[in-house]
Amino acid sequence: MAATERKKTFRFSEKREKEIAALRGRYEYPQGLIMPLLWMAQYDEGWVSPEAMETIAEICETSPAWVYSLATFYTMFELERPIRYQIQVCHNLSCSLNGSESILAHLEKKLGIRAGEATEDGRFRLSAVECLASCGSGPMMQVNTEYYEQLTPEKIDALLEEFGRD
């Protein structure tokens, strides 16, 4: 996380405020809302910004550091920058047995980045991730919220085209 000077502040939309109000009654203490709010922020902005963490800390009556510790413990939160397409290739055993390494290598080549990196324009981040519970359909990957299964290099090419980038 960049320790740059920050002046912006983050606010949830009115629609979100209503959802948050409805959730409050479900958790016995406000801290329980941290995860739901991290998700909302990420969904709305493509990442969880430091400003968002400050706002979440305020709503959940805790410190920004505490929110940060959760956002880094749980690996799905994007803390570096907004990303358009989060490409996550399963490289656990079942997918590996079916060739996930070559799928990952193909993506690395096509996107010009290594697993773990993001493209400079912030459109793609490529990650090798652990089992996504789609073991019967490997090799597979998740792009944002969708699963793409029984992958081949050809399927990848078509998908990347669909995402607006060859």
Partner: peptide, 21 residues
């Protein structure tokens, strides 16, 4: 005050503060 936390997991876990705090 909860300024200090352990961020990340496993071998990469480390004590940290929140930037600017």
């Amino acid at each position: 005050t909860a300024e200090l936390v352990i961020a990340n997991r496993g071998s990469h876990a480390e004590i940290t503060t929140f930037p600017g705090r």
